[in-house]
Design a protein around this nucleic acid. Structure first.
Length: 597
RNA sequence: GGGCCCGUGGUGUAGAUGGAUAACAUAUCGGCCUGUCAAGCCGAAGAUCGCGGGUUCAAGUCCCGUCGGGCCCGCCA
């Protein structure tokens, strides 16, 4: 940096009496008429520059014209600040630079929003002027964190014998999974490349190729609707290993993620080692395969008590093969009818028919079930005192608690209660943003029944291996077969998914057969894979953690746009550049395309 | 494809039930000011209330449509 001798975050008392040159942006300007103070900012920090007309009238004149975000170069002497004038909020606060020369390298228009404070700004405006938004402390902090995480991953995996290999962005479309982004081919009229949804096939082929330990910080593309944790293009740590079982992959990832959290972030790990749940256990106890384990409030099955009780909704649900499950919203026993109605509206959004509730009065009220005022409830009056007490005991109900129940098909009861649990956890302040609860979910069902298509779909992807001992079940009872799949879950987000792959052609064909993929179609779509598998394929498996999501959690941000330099909006648009945009008729013609709008 | 929320000087907000000059903070511009660090004090300028239409004597406010942003359902192997 020949235009500056030091950064704006560098100078300390030991630099006193040195002549230095700094360059950066005007962060703030304080004009006293005589003295002018400038907070000069660059990527490394802020340094106060003092312009005193007694030292240099020329420099003082320049300072008079300075405005926020001007780019300037200043040369001057470093000195310790006079006693009592230090600024403890600034890393460089013990010194200041007395300007002797100053040069405006580039003036700046008044920015459309504050850059020198992290005050709220409408997100559309931030995205339109993203290059200015990125100057702000919040974004700078997030992008630096992201860099440190990725650097850490590269170093860690390199030390573990992995090599980073780039795979193509222009690849082949396959109808499985998400919608592909397509790229028309000029040289092959009527044909298209697809941007990869992930380098899945390529990393498996690298295992066939004998690289044994591969990783990549890989950009992935999916043309689906956006969410706060989903962008059309996002970044995965893509990773694959040969001659391993699932314990090897999980062990590696567990060590990596533990080290990242402990060495790169200020968050606390709740579980060490990570907790493990089977898919069925996760569904049973939390109603979801990506539970937020920062708090309890587990789902409890009371179907046995509800069966044949006097409350017809309960009894008939159980009789019809459904379940009655509930949770204990501890301390919410004082909720008003209106508050409970709000919770009811929430579960109804997820197709539950209603929410049964039972509130236990706060301490000091009547004690025994059966006595006047012992409970408020939407259904207790239909049950015996013993049944009510059994339910309270089952949910460990204490005075002041609110017990909430959904009676429905298991999928609906789980979904509704899981959402309810999340909302209550948030409302009760149980989701500590400084804590990361990492857990493995394993033993997923190998396939799930697709009602509309009347066929089995792979739970993960179609190269995932079933558990060895469950292979016979593929012929007899596919629903009970488990896959060698593992998901890493953190605070209610799925942050990685992976599996041990099928490496034998017979088994792969058996799976194609099971999910109703004709061999002809399979050859058409995956011929290169099937062919490759015939040339000596090692047992292999891998995983793909989402970098954006994990950095979001490490940064404590509410969505992944905050950890992506140039993200897209919910409608997948770039508000800064104006993408997507129309193209010229000449471009279309060259690509052999006609628009049909 | 669907539901909900938001859009008012550059920025962030206020403007119940429609009522006359659209308020506040901050930024901007000018003046004063030699120890501030969110500098201070004085003054000025700055808004066709996202856009289009409608209801009404009267619309920032109510209705319809539309554009943009966000959250969510569907979707995301």
């Amino acid at each position: 940096m020949s235009l500056k001798t030091h950064t704006c975050g560098q100078l300390r008392p030991e630099h006193a009496d040195q002549t230095v040159t700094l360059a950066g942006w005007v962060h703030r300007r304080r004009d006293h008429g005589g003295l002018i103070f400038i907070d000069l900012r660059d990527r490394w920090g802020i340094t106060q520059v003092v312009f005193n007309p007694d030292i240099s009238t020329e420099a003082h004149k320049v300072a008079h014209d300075l405005r926020v975000e001007y780019v300037v170069k200043v040369t001057g002497n470093v000195r310790r600040r006079p006693p009592g004038l230090e600024n403890p909020d600034l890393a460089t606060g013990e010194i200041e630079v007395l300007a002797e020369e100053a040069e405006i390298l580039n003036p700046a228009k008044t920015p459309p929003f504050y850059i020198n404070e992290d005050s709220p700004v409408e997100e559309a405006l931030r995205l339109r002027y993203r290059y200015l938004d990125l100057r702000r402390q919040r974004m700078q902090r997030n992008l630096i964190l992201r860099h440190r995480v990725i650097k850490f991953i590269r170093d860690f995996l390199s030390d573990e014998g992995f090599i980073e290999i780039e795979t193509p962005i222009l690849f082949k479309s396959t109808p499985e999974g998400a919608r592909d982004y397509l790229v028309p081919s000029r040289l092959h009229p009527g044909k298209f490349y697809a941007l990869p949804q992930s380098p899945q096939q390529l990393k498996q082929l690298l295992m066939v190729a004998g690289y044994e330990r591969y990783f990549q910080i890989a950009r992935c593309f999916r043309d689906e609707d956006q969410r706060g944790d989903r962008q059309p293009e996002f970044t995965q740590l893509d990773l694959e290993m040969s001659f391993v079982d699932r314990e090897d992959v999980m062990d590696l990832i567990e060590r990596l993620f533990t080290a990242i959290v402990e060495q790169v972030s200020d968050k606390k790990l709740l579980f060490k080692p990570f907790r493990r749940l089977s898919y069925y256990e996760a569904m049973d106890r939390f109603g979801t395969d990506r539970p937020d384990l920062r708090f309890g409030m587990e789902l409890v099955d009371i179907s046995d008590i509800a069966a044949g009780c006097g409350f017809r909704v309960f009894a008939e649900t159980v009789a019809g093969g459904g379940v009655v499950k509930g949770l204990n919203a501890s301390g919410c026993g004082g909720y008003s009818r209106k508050q409970i109605d709000e919770l009811t509206d929430l579960v109804k959004k997820f197709e539950a028919k209603g929410l049964a509730w039972l509130a236990l009065p706060a301490p000091g009220g009547a004690a025994q079930v059966g006595e006047e005022g012992a409970v408020r409830s939407s259904f207790a009056k239909f049950l015996s005192d013993e049944q009510v007490q059994a339910i309270i005991d089952r949910l460990d109900g204490k005075p002041g608690d609110l017990l909430l129940f959904v009676a429905d098909r298991p999928e609906i009861a789980n979904e509704a209660l899981s959402r309810l649990r999340g909302t209550l956890g948030e409302r009760l302040g149980l989701r500590d943003p400084n804590v990361l609860a990492l857990c493995w979910v394993i033993d997923f069902p190998f396939v799930t029944w697709n009602e509309e298509e009347q066929r089995w779909d792979p739970s993960h992807h179609l190269f995932t291996a079933p558990m060895d001992e469950d292979i016979p079940l593929l012929d007899t009872d596919p629903a009970r077969a488990r896959g060698q799949q593992y998901d890493l879950v953190c605070n209610g987000y799925e942050i990685a998914g992976g599996s041990i792959r099928i490496h034998r052609r017979e088994l792969q064909e058996k799976v194609f057969n099971l999910i109703g993929l004709e061999m002809e179609d399979a050859k058409q779509q995956f011929g290169h894979m099937l062919e490759a598998f015939e040339y000596g394929t090692p047992p292999h498996g891998g995983i793909a953690p989402g970098i954006d999501r994990f950095v979001m959690l490490l940064a404590g941000e509410p969505n992944i746009r905050e950890v992506i330099a140039f993200p897209k909006t919910q409608s997948a648009a770039d508000l800064m550049a104006g993408a997507p945009s129309p193209v010229s008729p000449e471009q279309l013609k060259e690509l052999h395309l006609k628009l049909d709008l």
